[in-house]
């Protein structure tokens, strides 16, 4: 079986590279979009307590929705392809980032915040110099979870014409090509694992640098 897998890869290098790069583009776009939405929203919610409860409750529900359901839910409205897949993956990654960022920013030691205010810092300065640096490790943990979730769910984009490595699996299933199926499965598993490790390394560095500063 191992030789079949390698033979398939050698014969279909182009198709593999296209699927892999599409998977990465899809995931990276969704992660950036999720960050662009979630981080500012977390900053707003920390200051606007009355809004926070409702938004966090809604996001907790969003977090529970199965990935396949989320990917296909808008299919009748926005159709198939790259953009619908990106929209669904963005929504899928959003809760982990938003909830971690909001919780971390809120739970910064009130004494430290008080000390900052006592030194005459403005709200904005307290946020930039105290809350954000102290919350950074937990925020990064949320980003890592979201990144792995997005890379993982991007496999299902194949079902809504979004492309990516999942297409090798669905194509392999369609033609009962076990070698192609295995290449797709192994590549997706390896990519998810690599994402986890890469973001864990990043998180560790952030933790060390903020730990040294504090």
């Amino acid at each position: 079986m191992q030789s079949d897998v390698l033979a398939w890869l050698a014969d279909n290098r182009q198709a593999f590279e296209t699927a892999a790069s599409r998977h990465l583009t899809l995931s990276a776009t969704a992660l950036v979009a999720a960050l662009a939405l979630a981080l500012p929203l977390a900053l707003v919610l920390v200051r606007w307590n009355r809004l926070a409860g409702a938004v966090i409750a809604a996001v907790n529900v969003l977090r529970t929705i199965p990935s396949l359901a989320l990917l296909v839910a808008f299919l009748p409205l926005i159709g198939t392809g790259f953009l619908p897949a990106v929209i669904a993956l963005t929504l899928y990654g959003l809760p982990a980032i938003l909830i971690n960022a909001y919780t971390a920013l809120r739970e910064v030691d009130p004494d430290v915040v008080e000390a900052g205010l006592g030194q005459g810092m403005t709200d904005r300065q307290v946020m930039r110099r105290i809350r954000l640096p102290l919350a950074l490790p937990v925020i990064f943990a949320g980003i890592r979870t979201a990144a792995v979730q997005i890379v993982s769910a991007a496999t299902l984009a194949a079902f809504i014409g979004g492309g990516g490595l999942g297409e090798l699996i669905t194509a392999g299933m369609g033609t009962l090509n076990i070698a192609q199926l295995m290449v797709g499965g192994l590549a997706v598993a390896a990519l998810a694992m690599a994402t986890e490790l890469a973001f864990a390394a990043l998180e560790w560095r952030v933790q060390r640098s903020t730990g040294a500063a504090a």
Binding site: M1, T155, L181, M182, V188, A189, A192, M193
Partner: peptide, 17 residues
């Protein structure tokens, strides 16, 4: 943890053979 990280569709693909 390694098992948990493998995406669902990939795990199914790897179990089929």
């Amino acid at each position: 943890g390694v098992l948990y990280t493998i995406p669902a569709l990939a795990l199914f693909a790897l179990l089929i053979p």
